[in-house]
Amino acid sequence: MFTFPVEPDDLLDERTRQFVALGIPRPVVDRARARITDMWGTGAGSWVPVWAAEAERAHASGDPLLASLCWGAARFPCLATDDRRAAQEHQLAAYLEAAPRFPVRFQRAVLNVPEPVPVHFFQRRRRGRGRSARPGVIVLCGGVDTWKMDLHRLAVATARATGLLVAAVDMPGTGESTVPLAPDADRILVGLVSQLRRAHGQPVGFYGISFGAHWAAKLALAGHVDAAVDLGGPTGLTDEPVDLLNLPYGMPGIVGNALHVDEMPDQSTIADLLAGFSLREQGLLDKAGAESSPLLVINGADDVYVPRGDIVGLAGRPETTVWVIKDAGHCAPERSSQVNLALWGWLAARLAPGRPLPRLVEIAARQPLRPFLGEGSAGQYA
């Protein structure tokens, strides 16, 4: 693990919207930003101490969930320092303290697949009789810097909106994962999906965000899941390679830490590392056919991280739908409410088989998104 050059003010320019969307009130973010002067140090104006103070303030006021989110901001963007690793431990402790008040049923488990994978389960509270059937399962996975506890709001909303059992996990190389990010790290996720399918006896899908969406596409093309959503995932399908070392906001260092390397890779090393992730080079596009699973691919048309070809290049594959969102960036946060409503309908229709209602819900849920679909959108109901 290593630190790397990044200006905290620049990082907050880019991430303030995200922190607020995850559940940290804007005044808290603004207060922290006004005090932060250094990214990696330990002084009073350094990133971790400032966010730690906000976490402790939230905890003292009786809000352990907000404390957990602030500890999550403290450990951001990666576990490159001792105080960030400690912040993640505080985040988990505060999160579990907050869990009894969650508006859904919650359970934490560590599944061996065979590597240990901590999983957070969320399920809608069921009312009345005749609704005891086991729901389908959706694995929720974030990217290189936004992890399962950070995605609490999305996990709860997905469980409540779809009725599915949400299993939130950290992507390999991040969070509580014990293995580095690597082209074959999908073996962990394949093992997890298989174990969930055996345990629950229901269809299992995968909802991946940012780099986590890379695995959504891979698992769907290989037929390991019953359905998958790729929201902003790099796939290596385009002839335009991702110039990782020139990506903004510290992304080269963030990815390098997920790869578990000890220093910033040089250009040739990083090119070799990234080439291994290409789904085209792995032959998955050639193999994808009858065994492929339904795949929904979504991203903003103006993503600065992932080439558009990585998204639209999947159009035309069996059972693949592509939504390109106009005037939106990486993972289309500008239209998150419309995107999530539409993809929840899409997931419910595929992971709750034998029920006519989810298909109708899918059609209705997609309507608010239609005006924002841009060039490159393709497939059923695009």
Rank of each mutant, 00 (worst) to 15 (best):
P5I: 07
P8I: 03
Q18V: 15
F19R: 11
L22N: 09
A32E: 06
R33F: 00
T37L: 12
W47P: 06
V48L: 08
D63L: 06
L69D: 05
L69C: 09
F76L: 12
A80F: 02
D83I: 09
A109I: 03
L111M: 14
V113A: 14
P116L: 04
P116H: 06
V117S: 02
P118G: 07
H120G: 00
G130N: 05
K148F: 00
D150T: 08
L165C: 00
A168Y: 00
V179C: 03
D186I: 11
A199Y: 05
H200Q: 11
V204E: 02
L219Y: 02
V225N: 01
A227K: 02
L237M: 04
L237H: 02
N246R: 15
G250N: 06
P252Q: 08
G253Y: 00
N257W: 11
A275F: 02
G276C: 06
L284Q: 10
K287E: 15
A288F: 05
L296K: 07
I311T: 13
W323D: 04
V324S: 03
K326P: 07
C331S: 11
P333D: 00
Q338A: 13
G345N: 10
A349E: 13
I363C: 12
P371K: 06
S377E: 04
A378D: 13
Q380A: 15
Y381K: 11
